[in-house]
Design a protein around this nucleic acid. Structure first.
Lengths: 230, 230
DNA sequence: TCAAAAGTGTTGACTTTACACCCATGG
DNA sequence: CCATGGGTGTAAAGTCAACACTTTTGA
């Protein structure tokens, strides 16, 4: 196929992990680099793939090592392979997009990173390598994807008031939505199970709590829906 | 980030190239391997990335070398990185999806391949490596994508009768479509420019020839449309 | 004049949008 | 009783689906 000249390219994985805290912005997980290049700078988690592990295993391991996070949803995003991405070697990096409910995960920085933190997508620090570009692409994908697959639920608590879902969509899409029409649409998909519980905290009338229906989720995940928000 | 143990993984690119001949099935470009493993077997074009070239450059070079094809449309599909993909080394392969109008491209097998041929997606030979899997994923992507982006035009001649577009959709989606509704919908997007020419060959009433509107294409490519075919 | 493919409209069903007031609770 | 957020319906506009006959050409 190709002359067997020795190839000098490294393979890495990186992860853009989104988390959502109610009433706040959409957040992204960043780690502070403990080694050069960009030592002390912020970057998305990631690292070189080990010889014996599959790509997704590699991302999960790196996430674990660098931040303690185990994402609920994780899918391949895009592979970045330009020759000048890394000042040391040529590195081809397979980027993943992950979703996490941060209230179920404690963040800690392990050996491989000096620190790990959530940052609002609107207030990101300057990032190492081409990571800002990777995040931009991830955000675009998330915004598109949430409109035809029910992945948003991965960011919410197991039981959540309807308004959480509403705010999540508002936040991710960055656009006002009509509460009545939104509720009708979501309800029509049959994705939500009503529980008998109600939200306690906060002022105002307590909202019913919902869980989401895993079977319906799978159905809609496969066939997709069309959910344009006006 | 990660201990600098020497990594032993190779980086390759592969391409699933679709071509469409009027009145025929959708076709895929395959090459006959001239080296082991799978020597003499059929595979999708591809090969190792050179140190100094970007990923997309690598695919284009390999396609050129192995078949003489320069795809009109080419985008990254997915990266396949399981540990056991290749019996020799570990190879991570970045797969691309390409579209070509075969009547504008002569196929030839160059030094790197014994032969290069179009195969109907419905009559593929047994394929090397995990290439059948890659093709399955590419087909799925093509079928989905053609329903929200106007990429189909890349498969047609520069001037084409409306029925070509119709048949193309029928073929790719593998489903009957309503001619009247289809035409209305496509026309409403403003993607087509009517020419003064008509199709000559074939029996029956000659059809007007159309070209497609590059500017509108770009618009719709970015914003996407929603085109479910019933 | 026949066969083959091109071209073309309308109606009813359904879906989407726009829009505002009352309700339940806690302080 | 006030503030806060939760919960709900309807009508008009727009879009989609279903459906069949006429036109143009070449043989």
């Amino acid at each position: 196929m190709v002359p067997q000249k020795i190839q000098d390219i490294k393979v890495a994985v990186d992860a853009v992990i989104f988390g959502y805290f109610d009433k706040k912005d959409l957040q992204i997980l960043l780690i502070k680099r403990s080694i050069d290049p960009f030592k002390g700078g912020w970057a998305i988690p990631g690292g070189l793939v080990l010889d014996h592990e599959n790509l997704e295993e590699a991302v999960r391991r790196e996430l674990q090592e660098e931040s303690g996070i185990k994402p609920d949803f994780l899918e391949q995003l895009y592979t970045f392979g330009n020759v000048d991405r890394d000042p040391r070697n040529r590195v081809v990096s397979v980027a993943y997009l992950g979703l996490v409910n941060p209230s179920y995960h404690e963040l800690f920085a392990d050996s491989d990173a000096e620190d790990a933190q959530w940052f609002s997508v609107h207030k990101l620090p300057k990032l190492a390598f081409d990571h800002q570009n990777i995040i931009d692409i991830a955000l675009k994908r998330l915004r598109t994807k949430i409109q035809y697959q029910p992945i948003g639920f991965n960011l919410l608590n197991e039981e959540f008031p309807f308004s959480d879902l509403e705010n999540l969509y508002r936040t991710i899409i960055g656009q006002e939505i009509d509460r009545r029409n939104f509720r009708k649409k979501i309800m029509s998909y049959g994705l939500l199970n009503e529980t008998k519980n109600v939200k306690k905290e906060g002022s105002g009338r307590p909202g019913k709590l919902f869980t989401f229906n895993q079977e319906k989720y799978k159905e809609w995940e496969e066939q997709g829906f069309y959910f344009e928000i006006k």
